[in-house]
Write a protein that binds this DNA or RNA. Structure first.
Length: 467
RNA sequence: GCUCCGGUGGUGUAGUCCGGUUAAGCAUAGCGGCCUCUCGAGCCGUUGAUCCCGGGUUCAAAUCCCGGCCGGAGCACCA
């Protein structure tokens, strides 16, 4: 079994690419086959070196390991040869009609005069595409079936002229194949057995097989699956690019985005993505899985490896009377995994979250987690509380911070609501965290107790991965 | 508009090709309980689907056939 993942290097890889790459790799692995990574770079107008690299490093992060990496643009000579064979088999013709005319004829299902030219003449016209005709003056079209119900069969374009510089090939070529022509041939000659693509290509299957038929090439089995996209988190450049250009989001790694860069920065693990993709199954049903499902998987993996720290949102000071003389306390970094300890300095002042204070009133007794119990005496700007003992009781337990440092936590919300950009999609929460956070390296994962799993983005700035 | 593809508990799916010991498995969410200090994590338990609707074939249908409804995709000199 040989599968292939054929991205066009025209943008940053996202969760949709991850699905295609992982499915192809997993199937190949399952049958001890091979995976080919093929850059489908046949439109120099859209491709950039930057994107080849982004895809490569995205795949590397996902731990998808292709057995072979190639570019369609490396096979141009071969593709030209097949074009000639097709022409000789009376399977293609050069069309010099205007674009609108072609479109209209396809809609109506009628042929133009170019279609009737004899093979020798077509061959001459084909040669002219390389050195005489200009962009938009001539294309090579497949002789399909103009009356087919499947409009992709109505003499689709096989080659067109594009003078732009190609990121890998430079100015070496200007007659470029379309996806419809290149993909089946590439798949076939690379011995791909199972060509899995997302289902928007479904109507092109007839064409795919027709081309291979006319060329007498081996036919891979084409299988399709549904596209992956999260609700309110579009994947298309059409939706995302304007947001970046308008600076509504910070860049391609903004934690609100479904790009691999963003998912990584947000704290999603590559193994979670793989497990998630696999849990979706191989189906054509179009559904938008909830992001919370990815979170649930990620949480299970994160839980045993994330140290627990205290963080209080919107801190409010608490002064404690009758406090036992304690200089510091040593706390475990994880309830049941051996992730070390930390020492917290104490005096009779500490902070709790305003959110917790909301649920309290004077006279209430609460447990400061891992510390002791206090009773609220008064609340006026600051809280006065009295030490009431150490015994574990069924009273509210809340986290606290002593001598903390101020940090920001970025919280990504749904990017689009009702198809409109959500202006409040990025919330910044301020609060105090234990000073231990200053000893963490960027990228460290923690669980702020009763708040959520977070990842340290840069000094004193965290991103909420999920609850 | 035309063509194609889908439709299983709140959500995501398994099962559909080769119709029968599963009148529907798993996960997630929900709910409840536990917890050697997180009632926003963890652990345990539990409620949810007559398998889009109608008809047909059959001893037997989520699974096959027909009709309908709803949703998505394609109709580029993009991939």
């Amino acid at each position: 079994m040989i599968t292939r993942f054929p991205p066009e290097p025209n943008g940053y890889p996202h969760i949709g690419h991850a699905k295609a790459a992982i499915i192809n790799e997993e199937y190949a692995k399952m049958y001890k086959g091979k995976l080919i990574l093929r850059f489908d770079d046949t439109n120099p107008l859209k491709e950039r070196i930057e994107y080849y690299d982004a895809i490569l490093s995205g795949l590397n992060w996902l731990e998808v390991k292709p057995d072979l990496i190639k570019n369609t643009s490396d096979d141009m000579k071969m593709l030209y040869d097949y074009a000639k064979i097709l022409i000789k088999n009376d399977g293609a013709y050069v069309c010099k009609c205007k674009q609108e005319e072609i479109k209209e004829n396809r809609r109506l299902g009628i042929a133009c005069k170019c279609r009737g030219r004899d093979i020798d003449r077509t061959m001459i016209e084909w040669d002219k595409m390389f050195n005489e005709y200009k962009e938009n003056q001539a294309i090579l079209r497949f002789k399909g079936d103009l009356s087919s119900d499947n409009t992709t069969m109505r003499d689709p374009t096989l080659f067109r002229i594009i003078d732009a510089e190609h990121p890998k090939q430079g100015k070496r070529y200007r007659v470029w194949p379309t996806y419809d022509f290149a993909a089946p041939i590439e798949d076939s000659i690379d011995n791909v057995t199972h060509a899995m693509r997302s289902k928007e290509y479904e109507l092109r299957n007839d064409l795919y097989y027709a081309i291979l038929d006319r060329l007498g090439l081996r036919k891979p089995l084409v299988i399709e699956f549904s596209r992956l996209e999260f609700d309110g988190m579009p994947v298309s450049k059409r939706m995302l690019k304007p947001l970046i250009e308008a600076k509504k989001v910070q860049g391609w790694d903004d934690p609100r985005l479904p790009t691999l860069l963003a998912l990584k920065r947000r704290g999603i693990l590559p193994s979670s993505i793989r497990e998630f993709v696999l849990s979706l199954g191989f189906t054509k049903a179009d559904t938008k899985p909830p992001f919370t499902k990815l979170e649930a998987i990620n949480r299970k993996i994160l839980d045993p490896i994330s140290i627990r720290l205290f963080f209080v949102k919107d801190p409010i000071k608490m002064k404690i009377d009758d406090m036992p003389s304690m200089i510091s306390i040593r706390l475990k970094n994880h309830p049941d995994k051996d992730l070390g300890y930390r020492e917290i300095k104490l005096d009779n002042e500490l902070y709790i979250s305003s959110d917790d204070l909301c649920n309290l009133k004077i006279g209430d007794e609460i447990r400061l987690l891992e510390l002791f119990n206090v009773k609220i005496d008064s609340i006026d700007g600051i809280i006065h509380a009295k030490y009431t003992g150490n015994e574990l009781k069924q009273i509210p337990r809340i986290q606290w911070v002593s001598k903390g440092v101020e940090i920001n936590v970025l919280v990504a919300k749904q990017l689009y609501l009702d198809n409109k950009f959500n202006e409040n999609s990025l919330e910044v929460i301020k609060g105090y965290a234990e000073e231990y956070v200053d000893r963490l390296e960027n990228g460290s994962r923690v669980q702020f107790v009763r708040f959520g799993f977070c990842i340290l983005d840069e000094a004193r700035k965290f991103i909420l991965t999920h609850k």
